[in-house]
Simulated scan of single mutants.
Amino acid sequence: MPVADLPLVSMLRNRMQWNQTRQKVLAENVANANTPGFRARDLKAPAFRPDGSLAAALPAGFGITQTNPLHLAGSGAGSPTEERQRTRFDVVPSGNAVSLEDEMLKASENQADYQLAASLYQKSLQMLRTAVGR
């Protein structure tokens, strides 16, 4: 089996590709900050199956359940990475809804995520080389 087909390596490679694509989208948002009527876009985070492949969606019936009455009840409404609540300052006089502060925050989070994935990718390859005896 090629090294690229290992689940961990494949997941990390897919995550880095997603981060690269997201960075392009965020850069477009910043570049169009003064374009009238422009709406900021973002990418949905990829979901992975236990075998390491990308999951299109969660299986039917899969959701958040409260297993103990002392636990907080989950709403299942989404994750914190989904679109943030807009503040009253988001729409600027040009008529667009791009908040430069939000976009720069997303870009810095995206950069940190990419660096983490790249570091894990490099370390996993080093570990495989060590296991092979190189």
Rank of each mutant, 00 (worst) to 15 (best):
A33R: 07
N32E: 03
D90L: 05
Q23Y: 05
D5F: 07
A31P: 06
V25T: 13
S79D: 12
I64G: 02
D90Y: 01
P80K: 02
A4E: 15
A131F: 02
L43R: 15
Q122L: 06
R41N: 10
L100P: 02
K106Y: 04
Q122D: 06
F38P: 01
Q23I: 03
G74A: 11
M127P: 00
G37L: 06
G63P: 00
Y114H: 15
S53L: 04
M11A: 15
S108V: 14
P36V: 03
D42W: 09
V132L: 13
G61M: 13
G78N: 10
L6K: 13
P59L: 06
N68V: 02
V25P: 15
S79E: 13
P69F: 02
R15L: 14
M127E: 12
A73K: 01
P46G: 10
A73S: 08
D5G: 05
T21K: 02
Q122E: 07
A117M: 05
G37I: 00
S108T: 15
N32S: 04
I64Y: 12
E82I: 00
S99F: 02
A45F: 11
Y121G: 14
R22W: 04
S94I: 08
R134G: 15
R22S: 10
A60Q: 14
R49S: 14
G52E: 02
S124W: 01
Q126I: 02
L105K: 10
A27T: 12
R86Q: 14
R84K: 11
L105E: 12
M127Q: 14
L105F: 10
G133L: 03
A31I: 13
P46Y: 04
T21P: 00
L26P: 06
N110F: 06
M127L: 14
P93A: 07
E103T: 10
A131N: 06
L72Q: 14
R49T: 12
S75R: 08
Q20L: 12
R86W: 09
L54S: 10
W18M: 10
R88A: 14
P93V: 08
M1C: 03
P7E: 06
D113E: 13
K123W: 08
L6F: 13
K106N: 13
R134L: 15
D90H: 05
A118V: 02
P80C: 01
Q122M: 05
T35W: 15
L8T: 15
S99R: 04
V9T: 15
